[in-house]
């Protein structure tokens, strides 16, 4: 079903210098198995076209993926001219993007 990712996934994002981090988690093992396959670094860049270099780390124990978006915030929080200079809402932007979610996971 075509739904916002946030229908099943939570997220939290923030800044580390000029990089942003974006953690995404789900609440069942089945959802996590789907998320790992669906939300690759390349797919994240499709969903968030403003992202440049993206690195993905897996945390299966937390049913979570952590993405580091290199250089998104320029020289860092104080210098950034970005609309959301601390990347606080990056996760909520991602959660609002529509993706195809298998109905069994809802």
């Amino acid at each position: 079903m075509r739904l916002p990712l946030g229908a099943i996934a939570g997220a939290r994002s923030g800044d580390k210098g000029g990089d942003a981090n974006l953690g995404v988690w789900v609440r069942t093992d089945e959802q996590y198995a789907w998320l790992v396959g669906e939300l690759t670094a390349a797919r994240l860049k499709e969903l968030l076209p403003e992202a440049g270099e993206v690195e993905r780390f897996e945390l299966p124990n937390l049913r979570a993926l952590n993405f580091v978006l290199r250089g998104l915030l320029g020289e860092g929080v104080a210098a950034s001219t970005r609309f959301d200079p601390q990347a606080k809402a990056l996760g909520e932007w991602l959660r609002s993007r529509h993706v195809d979610i298998p109905e069994a996971l809802l």
């Binding site: 997220a11 981090n21 953690g23 988690w25 780390f57 945390l59 937390l62 979570a64 952590n66």
Partner: peptide, 10 residues
Amino acid sequence: TAQLLYEIGP
């Protein structure tokens, strides 16, 4: 979980 994912890298 949400807070564990805040401002982390590898």
